[in-house]
Computed example of a mutant assay.
Amino acid sequence: MQPRAVDAAGVAHDYAGADARIVSLVPSLTETLFALGLERQIVGRTGFCVHPRNKVRAVPKVGGTKAVKLDALRALRPTHLIVNIDENERDTVEQLRAFVPHIVVTHPQTPRDNLALYALLGAIFGREDEAQRLSTALDACLREAAAHTFAAQNVLYLIWREPWMSVARDTYIAAMLRLVNWHTLPDVHGGSVGAARYPTVDFDDAPWLARVDRVLLSSEPYRFTAAHRDALAGDPRLRGKRIELIDGEMTSWYGVRAIHGIAYLLRRTAAA
């Protein structure tokens, strides 16, 4: 008998078997399930699960990461549901427990946590070799980042406007940025869950703003554009700071995307 795999909620999962029917409510993990070779067993996904583009179109949608269509999901008869503590509503997940036999809870908080994530999914779905290949690739990226010396930068990483919202230092995004010695401001910690992980920012009441070197405008969840960048460049409160667009998928998506995300950050710092 194979050993049981324990998820982020402390629940042990047995090997799923070849007839597993998987619904993923986490875009980055939908992509990772495909990378593990599970495309024949993925029967549902959210509308935000858009990678890999050439394959995911064939998978039925069950709403969004938070606005889940329960009846549509039920109709797919899933045996396994993949969720995330940050991205999915707890109340919704509890409702889904009524008809989904196995709910796999994930919560990576640092890039290195993806190693355990690969192992978890590989063990549950019988893709240990594929999971090991992802782990080897990620470990190589982490080693490459650790081998470099980067100039320290304080960054304001914005994920929303009206109101402006940033990220706490104990988020996955902040941990990714620290790989290249970029440190998020404000210097706050938000805990494991909740709105405090994504604090609002008032440019008129932020004494720490003077210490910011770069303002990074993420492509998600708010899709910042060059027009937003140019408008902020003219804001006297941000005078003298580099204001740049950044690919939010590369910094916030875990799973297989972490491998590409680290390489992306290394390229950005090399070009800076």
Rank of each mutant, 00 (worst) to 15 (best):
M1H: 10
P3G: 06
V6F: 11
A8C: 07
V11M: 10
H13F: 08
D14T: 10
V23T: 05
P27S: 13
S28V: 06
G37N: 02
I42L: 15
G47V: 13
C49L: 04
A67K: 14
R74A: 15
R77W: 02
R90M: 15
E94A: 07
L96N: 09
A98D: 13
F99Y: 13
V104P: 03
V105Y: 14
T110H: 09
T110Y: 03
A119M: 08
L121Q: 05
D129F: 11
D129T: 15
T136F: 07
A146R: 14
H148Y: 05
A152K: 15
N154F: 11
N154R: 15
L156F: 04
W160N: 13
R161H: 09
M165I: 04
S166Q: 02
A168G: 11
Y172G: 01
A174F: 08
M176W: 09
L177D: 02
L179W: 14
T184D: 12
P186M: 00
D187W: 05
G190H: 06
S192H: 11
A195I: 14
A196Q: 13
T200H: 08
W208S: 01
L216V: 12
S219G: 08
T225V: 01
T225L: 06
A227H: 12
R229G: 02
L232P: 10
A233L: 09
D235G: 10
G240C: 08
I243E: 02
G248I: 01
M250H: 11
T251Y: 00
W253S: 00
Y254G: 11
G255I: 03
A263P: 02
R267V: 05
